[in-house]
Design a protein around this nucleic acid. Structure first.
Lengths: 149, 149
DNA sequence: ATTTCTGCAAATAATTTGCAACATC
DNA sequence: GATGTTGCAAATTATTTGCAGAAAT
C-alpha cells in the first residue's frame, strides 16, 4: 500500500482484488457504490443508502445496492449492525479501529467509542472458556447528553 | 417477597401486579406461557416457543405467545436479544444478574458470562460522554471449545 | 355488562431471489 | 462468446395487526 494513495484508492484496490479472486466483475455500479459508501455517514441501512442514489438520479436499483453491501461486508470493507430498530445497518470498517456504540433510546443518536481495556477483558474471559473471539459487539443503550435533562 | 415461595410463584406475583396496574387480564394462556417460559431453555424465538405449545397439544396460538412475550419483556421478566440469525430471541431476566454472551459462529452455541469489571468500565465510558446507561448488550462471536480444534 | 383477550388469517416490513436484458471479461 | 450483473417485480421471512367470538373482571 502506497500511503500517498487516497483512502478511496486503497479501498478500491482491496475491493478489486477481492472481486478478481471470486471471479466477480467490477462494474460501474459497484464502483459508484463503494465511492458513496466511503463518503456517506455511518450506520446506514440498505434502504437509506439506496435513497441517496435515487435522490442523485442515479439509476442504481435497490437489489444492486443491497447485494453490493453484502459484497463489501464479505471482503471486510463494511460491517453489519442490528441496533434497536429492525434494520440491518452498515458502516465502513476500512482502516478504522474496532469501535463500539452508545445508542440514545430517545433520539436514536449513535456515539462511537473505543476501549482497549474492555477488549483486553473480553480476551481474558474468552480464554477462560477456551473460546476464540472472531468479532464482538458492545452496545450501550441509554440517554445521551441532550436527553438526560 | 417470601423466600419460601418458589421462583415461579414470585414471578407470577410480579406478573399479576403488572397486569393489574395496566388494567390487563390474567388469562389461562398468560399463566401457562409464564410457566413454560421459566422452565424452558434460554434464547428462544417466538416461533420456537410456540412450537413447544403446539407439540404439547396446547391450543395457544402464535399471536398470543408473541404478545405475551412482549408483555413479559415490558414487565421485566424477559429480555429480547438479536444475535446473528434474524430472529428476536427471548430469555428470562427474572432473578438473574445481567449477563453477556459468547456465541459460536460454527454451532450457534451460546455461553453466558458476567463481568463486573467490564460493566464498571462501561459506566466510566458512559460518564465521560455524559450518557446514562439504561441497558447494554455485549456479544463475543467466535469459536467455542468444541470448534477450535 | 364492560372490557380485554384469543386465535385466526391477513397485512406489513425488511430482506432475499428469479429472470430477461445487459455489461464485463 | 461466455459468464456474471442489473433492475425489476415477485417471493420469502419474521413480525405485527384487525377482527369476531370467547373469557375475565
Amino acid at each position: 500500500m502506497n500511503s500517498s494513495d487516497t483512502k478511496l484508492q486503497r479501498a478500491s484496490q482491496l475491493f478489486e482484488v477481492y472481486l478478481k479472486r471470486q471471479s466477480l466483475k467490477l462494474t460501474k455500479q459497484r464502483q459508484e457504490i463503494l465511492v458513496q459508501f466511503l463518503s456517506v455517514g455511518h450506520h446506514i441501512s440498505a434502504e437509506e443508502f439506496h435513497l441517496i442514489f435515487k435522490e442523485a438520479n442515479s439509476k442504481i436499483g435497490f437489489s444492486t445496492v443491497y447485494r453490493t453491501l453484502k459484497l463489501l461486508t464479505d471482503c471486510g470493507l463494511a460491517r453489519e449492525h442490528q441496533f434497536g430498530d429492525r434494520f440491518t445497518r452498515y458502516e465502513s470498517s476500512f482502516e478504522t479501529d474496532h469501535h463500539d456504540h452508545l445508542i440514545c433510546t430517545q433520539c436514536g443518536d449513535i456515539i462511537e467509542f473505543e476501549s482497549a481495556e474492555i477488549e483486553a477483558l473480553q480476551t481474558t474471559i474468552a480464554k477462560s472458556h477456551n473460546f476464540i473471539i472472531q468479532d464482538h459487539k458492545l452496545e450501550l443503550y441509554g440517554l445521551c447528553a441532550k436527553h438526560n435533562q
